[in-house]
Design a protein around this nucleic acid. Sequence first.
DNA 1: GACGGTATACTCGGCTTAGAGTATCCGTCA
DNA 2: TGACGGATACTCTAAGCCGAGTATACCGTC
Lengths: 214, 214
Amino acid sequence: MVKRKVSNPLALAVLAVLSESSMHPYEMAQKLKGRGKEQSIRINYGSLYTVVDALVRASFIEPVETFREGRRPERTVYALTPAGEVELREWLSEILRTSTKEYPEFEAGLSLMPVLPPETVAPLLRQRIESLDIRLAEVRAFMDQMRSNGLRRLFLIEAEYEEMMLRAELAWVKCLAEELEEGTLEDLEIWYRWHQGDESSRSFAIRGKERHVS
Amino acid sequence: MVKRKVSNPLALAVLAVLSESSMHPYEMAQKLKGRGKEQSIRINYGSLYTVVDALVRASFIEPVETFREGRRPERTVYALTPAGEVELREWLSEILRTSTKEYPEFEAGLSLMPVLPPETVAPLLRQRIESLDIRLAEVRAFMDQMRSNGLRRLFLIEAEYEEMMLRAELAWVKCLAEELEEGTLEDLEIWYRWHQGDESSRSFAIRGKERHVS
DNA sequence: GACGGTATACTCGGCTTAGAGTATCCGTCA
DNA sequence: TGACGGATACTCTAAGCCGAGTATACCGTC
């Protein structure tokens, strides 16, 4: 798990498109967007040009020509260096090989959930289910769109992954919402009482008498 | 979907602990870590103090006293303001209610996967399976640890979520690895040929003759 | 009583990032 | 013909974020 000189995933995408042919930054963005990569990688111009500079500094890419048409801004065409090709392969391998802990917003939300009273949380989860359904439909629509543009399934594998993860979350949230509504969730009783202002459930995180965990 | 004045999830955690009692930043971190929240929310001191400042500027919290013991650095104790309580509830509700698109590294990796030849990818996925197994064991160990410290299940719900998501990914990656190894994956043929340097598969992303998608 | 290790409590600087802004060219529709 | 939107191709700046560093206090031990 080496520390990368440039760590933004957009830089990986830049190395990947440059491995096919040299081009200027704006064209990279066009190519990536044309293939629907903006669904899996944050592409924004602010970051793109910074990332390209950083890759030049790290000698993973180099400018090969610059020219201008009329009075338009100058275009600089970049090419992958041998070191860049190595970096591309190694970095991509590392990403596929090892799973790194990430911090999705919802996980943070769940971990603070007891701050809200249970009666409030149940309908929120119901809304989330709707929200997930919508997102699922969007992903499917995106895949259909790309496929009808002639893109191979192999190049939409990340969308299939996302779809599967959405389905998994959906099932889990449905289950949690049900447990809340049916009252079958463990600890639901004290959670409810605590929000009633019941002093006996002060610091209700810990079972039994308060214990300091450090 | 309002734009938050302070958007770091750590800020939400700060609001949450302050809703129980006033305290100084270092104590917030201790309390959050004691409850295992560093598993679901990035807690680091650099961000903590910046985030506390930002919350003060936004009037969600305010300093209530500062004092020093001996010659130790000064401690500033903060308290939640009414506006902060509103923000806490609204923000947390929004997170639970709506799913926002995120960009996990692995999704980016998958979307660029065809850059590597298929024979290379298969063993990488096998390694990922091991890596996921390890992570899964860690999550389980963490839950056992916390439970034996007396923490209620309700306060480990985010760990259950993470465990479920890990299992889902694990099953999917196993399936993908198998398809690669058995040769049953769609488009595997051209993918292989392309890495052999077969010119007939140039720009193999698109089926049939090259079409420009913009 | 000197020494090392750990806990306490922050501070600082530099790198990353996002998002808005700028300037030019081109097609088209009235 | 001229005006307007949209595509092209960057640039700039404020803010966010993190990791490493700092300084003191406490505690055991040899």
